[in-house]
Write a protein that binds this DNA or RNA. Sequence first.
DNA 1: CTAACTAATGCAATTCCATTGCATTGTTTT
DNA 2: AAAACAATGCAATGGAATTGCATTAGTTAG
Lengths: 138, 138
Amino acid sequence: MKAITEQKLANKNVTPTAMRILVMNTLLAQNAAISLSDIEKSLAPADRITIYRTIKTFEEKGLVHVIEDGAGAPKYALCLEECDVNEHHDLHVHFNCICCKETFCLPNCKIPDVSLPANFSSTEMNLIVKGICDKCAN
Amino acid sequence: MKAITEQKLANKNVTPTAMRILVMNTLLAQNAAISLSDIEKSLAPADRITIYRTIKTFEEKGLVHVIEDGAGAPKYALCLEECDVNEHHDLHVHFNCICCKETFCLPNCKIPDVSLPANFSSTEMNLIVKGICDKCAN
DNA sequence: CTAACTAATGCAATTCCATTGCATTGTTTT
DNA sequence: AAAACAATGCAATGGAATTGCATTAGTTAG
């Protein structure tokens, strides 16, 4: 696994330090988006500020994207490979389950076009859907 | 104007106190969504905590809705009359201008249907579009 | 009309999280 | 090996959300 991790970092010109590999592995191990404090907890007693800066670096380099799901703290999830610093291709829907509180990326669920009023142009879109996920549906 | 204000409060069973009328008038005077600190500034030196609780009350009673535009602090905007505590009919698009930094409701711009994966159901959707608004477009 | 009650307010204090400064350590380059 | 640069860890700051509690206002019952 470490090979994959370091490769991901190298692909985006992020020097693979010990801390960065730890954070990346934590992200890889998730299937839901996680908050900064989630990462802190699972990496305790690692330094909180370093984790914070690591995530910031990942974000700047296009490794992760931020999801504001309205649950208080922003959450982070790995980007797809095609992601780019300049143009995040994360135009997928994010789903926040009101039951299990998890937030998932739905990479196959694209945001439909919206027709904006005259003279409005869009550069970025974020769609958060709240509801019940498949696991909680039963 | 005060008549309209008090009517709006009464419609949602919110007793119209002096502070609530002030906050409601502040909201009515805006065409963009505003943050808590915006309200605090325009109502200074009124008590910050009371404003905070007033907005919370408005939110619970379906008078305002929260917009997480990713600009740090949540912003608030008046709901349409049809809004209800249980089912917010605010399925309109919110637009955040990266130029003037304002966030508007686009009440005529509805969120299109998205096809969720099997066994996912949605109760609420929030679509934030970032871009350039008509005023900044020229 | 007043006592009792409930709702709203204001202040103090706390907590949580984001962010920055700075000194130290590790890594790369020449 | 020295110089230059990047990453880290700790301390400290700052802003916003949130709660507790005592006071005040407004409503209702007797």
